[in-house]
Each structure stands twice: as C-alpha cells, then as structure tokens.
C-alpha cells in the first residue's frame, strides 16, 4: 500500500482518538481509547460469544439473501418475459417497495415471532426489490437477435429463459445482488436490534444499555470489517462468474 496524505490523515485521527482518551482530553465513559476497544473486541472474540453471534447473523443474512434473491430473479424474469404478469402485479410491488424496512418488523413479529423466521423474512423482503429491478432491466436489455436465434433453432421458451436470457442478463442481476448484499447485512443487524436476543445487532444494543462502550465500538469496527470483506468477496466472485463479460468490455474499450 502506498502511503499518501490520506493514510497519514487516518493514522493521525486514530492517534488523536487514542491520545484524547489516554491523556484525558475527553473525559467520558463513552469515549474509550482505541486500544481499549481493540482489547475488548479481542476478549469478546476469545470467549467465543461474539463468533457465535456473528455466525448466527451471517446465517440469517445468507438465508434471507438466497430466498429474496431467488424470488427477485424469478419475479423479474416473469415480469420481463410475460408482460401480463407485470401489468397484473407491478402495481402491488410498486406500492410495497417504498415502505422503510424497519417498519415491517413489528407486523412480522406478530406472525413469525422474534427468531430466525422473522429475521430471514425481513432480509428476504429487502433483497427482493433491488434484485427484481436489476433482473427486469437486465432481461429487457438482452439482444433480441440472440433470442430470435434461439427461436430459429427451435429452443423452447423455458430453455431459452434458462440458457440464453438468464446468462445474458447475469451481469445486471449480479449488480443487483451486490447492492442487496450490503443492504442484507444492514437489515439483519437492524432486525436484531429491534427484536429478539440473537445475533450481533442485539449484542450491540445490549452493550449500549450496559454502558460498555469499548465492547460496543468493537462490534461496530467488526461490522465494518465484515461489510468490507463481504463486498470484496462478492466482487471477486462476480469477476469469476462473468469473466466473459469483463473480457468483452475490455475488447470494446
């Protein structure tokens, strides 16, 4: 990594954080030094409590991502390929889309309780919309010629959808999933903060109420690292899955 003015700025801010707490410039139980935060994080990881909670959160996130993503892709395909379905159900989808996610948690708690099913549903609902939009746009942008060619070769509509349209729309769909992945982590944490005692979100609120600031900041740092890693991992996966698309883009440039 190249050391730039930006790196120095970060190092400077971190040093300022440490010094302001150590030297008593900011005297507040809510303002622990960076080293205390990292020590608290390390201790929480060592007891195994935090890793277990992270595992639970990640599992709920993944389950919601899979369910909502699958529903989004299928609905997007249907809307794009069978215009009647879009005309029938488009309005209902558009009416549900702008509801802020945290607001659907209370009613879902009534139906599904406080545990996994409720949280997975919330994540799935969040993921559904960006994946649907991107699938729709991706399918609509597929070259009509390639579909016509499939028809000429006598390939049936279902196999056309699976082997011509879906791969051609894959870059757009994956872009939708990338957006959805970031949202999924956020919403998992939000759901855990509002309801129940599971996962990393609940731990965060617990530490807030207990006034254990170092643990609280430690969890936030961990979440940032988690979000960053997930995004990087997904981008790497994306590059492998649609290598042909990047190759084409490079050729065109």
């Amino acid at each position: 990594m190249k050391i730039t003015s930006g790196t120095w700025l970060i190092l400077g801010l971190l040093a300022l954080w440490e010094a302001s707490a150590r030297l008593g410039w900011v005297e507040s139980p809510n303002w622990p030094a960076l080293s205390q935060v990292l020590a608290a994080l390390a201790a929480d990881m060592a007891t195994g409590e935090l890793p277990a909670r992270i595992g639970g959160s990640l599992w709920r996130m993944a389950a919601g991502l899979a369910a909502g993503g699958l529903a989004g892709v299928l609905t997007g395909l249907a809307f794009a390929l069978i215009p009647l379905t879009a005309r029938l159900f488009g309005l209902v989808v558009e009416l549900l889309r702008p509801i802020p996610v945290p607001a659907v948690i209370p009613p879902l708690v009534l139906f599904l309780g406080l545990d996994d099913p409720m949280k997975i549903t919330v994540v799935a609902l969040t993921v559904f919309f960006p994946v649907l939009t991107n699938t729709l746009q991706g399918v609509q942008a597929v070259e009509p010629d390639s579909i016509a060619m499939g028809r000429t070769f006598g390939i049936g509509p279902l196999r056309r959808a699976a082997f011509i349209i879906l791969p051609a729309a894959l870059p757009a769909i994956l872009a939708g999933f990338r957006v959805a992945l970031a949202l999924a982590l956020v919403v998992t944490v939000v759901a855990e903060m509002i309801a129940g005692e599971q996962g990393i979100g609940s731990y965060l609120v617990l530490m807030q109420f207990a006034g254990r600031a170092p643990e609280m900041y430690g969890v936030i740092l961990l979440l940032a690292a988690l979000g960053y890693t997930l995004n990087r991992g997904f981008v790497a996966l994306e590059r492998r899955l649609i290598r042909w698309w990047y190759a084409q883009a490079r050729q065109a440039a």
Binding site: V189, G201, M216, I220
Partner: peptide
Amino acid sequence: LIRPIPKSALVPPLML
C-alpha cells in the same frame, strides 16, 4: 474506511 460501516449500527453510540 467509514463507508462500509452499517450506519444503523451507529445509532447506539450516537444515543450515548
């Protein structure tokens, strides 16, 4: 560095 922090997680410290 700040962008990947889920902003919802910042509500508890902000409350403090």
